[in-house]
Design a binder for these strands. Sequence first.
RNA 1: GCCCUCAUCGUCUAGAGGCCUAGGACGCCACCCUUUCAAGGUGGAGAUCAGGGGUUCGAAUCCCCUUGGGGGCACCA
Length: 503
Amino acid sequence: MPVPDPTIRVRIAPSPTGPLHIGTARTALFNYLYARHVGGTFILRLEDTDVARSTPENERDILEGLDWLGITWDEGPDPAGGRDRGPFAPYRQMQRLDAYREATDRLLGADAAYPCYCTPAELDADRKAQEAAKEPPRYVGRCARLSPADRAEREARGLRGAIRFRVRPGVVGWTDLIRDRIEIDTANLGGDFVIVRADGTPLYHFVVVVDDAAMEISHVIRGEDHVSNTPKHILLFEALGHPIPQFGHLPLILNPDGTKMSKRKSQTAVDDYRAQGFIREGLVNYFSYLGWSPGTEEDVLSLEDVVERFDIGKVQKGGARFNRERLEWLNGQWIRRLEPDDLVNRLRPYLEAAAADGRIDRVPSDEELGALLPVIQERLPTLGAIVDLVGFLWVERLEVDPAVLVPKRWDPATTRDGLAAAREVIAAHDAVTWEADELEPPLRELVEARGWKAGDLFMAIRVATTGRTATPPLFDTLVALGRERTLARLDTAIEVLGGPIPT
RNA sequence: GCCCUCAUCGUCUAGAGGCCUAGGACGCCACCCUUUCAAGGUGGAGAUCAGGGGUUCGAAUCCCCUUGGGGGCACCA
């Protein structure tokens, strides 16, 4: 553990306008990694000023999701639903309106901001005209020079102005933690921007600065999509008289086609991945390597390992495309590393879900599952894959396609004979000694005696008992299936192929 | 349209002037193991370091231009 450094304070500021997004999780992770690596403080703040789109469900989803990933925060809302924790509570913006009101008054008093009475229609017309003239959209400044009398007149008419921040001319620059020096002329900011809506609710660019200042955030680490907004924030920090934090802009996570990750083209909700059985270790490991690498040839690292190695200076500048194959591979690596009891516990919800929607008829006991682990653990890219892999063990009526029942080199008659003979051999075993290494030798003897190939007979038995051509090792599978069901399924298959051989 | 920004195998990346005839991982292809499928092992294909100019004894690494990509320009966050 590094020596605690109280001067380093970073934050993730999600907006509860949707469920936890992969991009948010990745940004949270990098902030967490930075904080933990240097001994700083990691803060979570909910940016819920978009009242129309924010919901308590999304809020819960975000807190719960980050907590599940192991990205824990030192200050912020309590994931369990208790009071906000930390010296700067509350950490929800709708509960911090007084602070914004105070800041607004100061700005207004200093004439750094002014009320704007332009209607949406006027603004829209301005924008259309600019578009037609091939000019960049910007606020034309219609209300920038209103006299106190003009304002009083409008207020008297019952008009409520939005508050705009005066953008001063000049160049604003900063030294980005990830991309070095960036300078932007304020002429390109789109004119004076709104910081408070006409209805009195404050807007993002404003609250983010007021809160970062109030919460003494030292390093603002966020997505690259905020680079162009940073000058607005710096201007606001200046106007409010607060020290300007360091900024670091992370590369974006991209759709496979290289565009900014979107719901249209990719699965973006952490929940979706969780529902499929991606585990936190795999997800965190994968996210860590999206835009960062330790510079070594290691690739399977735990969260703690990454914290130890993290270096924000090593963060990539270009965007990283999301690659599901690699995620699955890493997830499989982590599933293989889980302790048996842990794996059983993590698998259960997926089996319960499968039972609930009828993909399987019953949920196996922990003992059953535990016994199966040695043959399934290395075959699971995700926890949810267990249903496809061995769901046939827990269904009452197995659907078997007669066409696949017959091995490639065999014909239906041979298959029927083979299965019937195998049934005899298997039935000769009593239930007490029903074990994998006892089942195999007599079947191999049978194959030998008949001049068959072991693979053909085994494949016929496999399909007859599981309905699939790809399964975990056959004899372990039959043991898991149990003697009665094995024999019953063989009988059914023999029936399908024309019934028992008449003697 | 304007501003910002990025640019190494299909993908994620190593690479901070000579260690690079560019390394690793995923994916792909073989082979080994093997009753199928995985896992594992071994090997292979795959990048004239976007292109062009410089600087330098020497450039993937520094500078410029071009091209291509991405992001931003709301009374969204």
